[in-house]
């Protein structure tokens, strides 16, 4: 996290030195600062910042792709007559432990159209969700755990 602060500071310095407050200058400075930090890293000890940075970017793109795909699915169901959906209320066993992880996971489930989270059980081990396209209960739960939750936990830990 410390390196992220330094990197953002580099970006701001680059932006102010350019003299024009433009968003492009910020990204330019961020990229140059990232390169600078990468070159001057200690080669003896591993630094998680660089791999984690790419993981976060990758995860954001994965999540946007997920939103678009499920949006088109729901939009197709709405636009054509009749229903294709097979809704169900499911209980998902959670691997997330802390409050932040559970909150992020529940919000991400809600943000993708077609699924939304209802409640968390009191011992925080089960998340109840409502899903619209459930072909088979067990494979749906397995897909969600292997897809979104595993990728989220890879980023968070």
């Amino acid at each position: 996290m410390n390196r992220l602060m330094v990197n953002i500071m580099f970006a701001f310095i680059w932006m102010f030195l350019q003299g024009n407050l433009h968003l492009f200058a910020f990204f330019e400075g961020f990229f140059l600062g990232f390169l600078f930090l990468f070159i001057t890293r200690k080669s003896t000890e591993p630094t998680p910042y660089f791999t984690r940075f790419f993981k976060v970017i990758w995860f954001i793109f994965y999540f946007i792709k997920e939103i678009i795909v499920s949006n088109l699915k729901v939009a197709y169901d709405v636009a054509t007559p009749g229903y294709f959906m097979k809704p169900a209320i499911l209980a998902i066993p959670l691997d997330c432990k802390t409050d932040l992880e559970i909150t992020l996971f529940a919000n991400m489930i809600t943000m993708t159209p077609g699924t939304w989270s209802i409640d968390v059980s009191d011992d925080r081990k089960t998340l109840y969700i409502h899903a619209m396209y459930v072909d088979d209960v067990d494979t749906f739960i397995k897909d969600l755990k292997n897809g979104l939750e595993r990728k989220l936990l890879e980023v968070m830990r």
Binding site: P87, I89, L90, A91, D119, S121, Y128
Partner: peptide
């Protein structure tokens, strides 16, 4: 046509608690 409802009977409204399905 809802396929499954795992939430059925899990709420305890008197104590305001929610049980674990598993």
């Amino acid at each position: 046509k809802t396929k499954a409802n795992h939430l059925e009977g899990q709420y305890d409204l008197k104590n305001k608690s929610l049980k674990n399905y598993y």
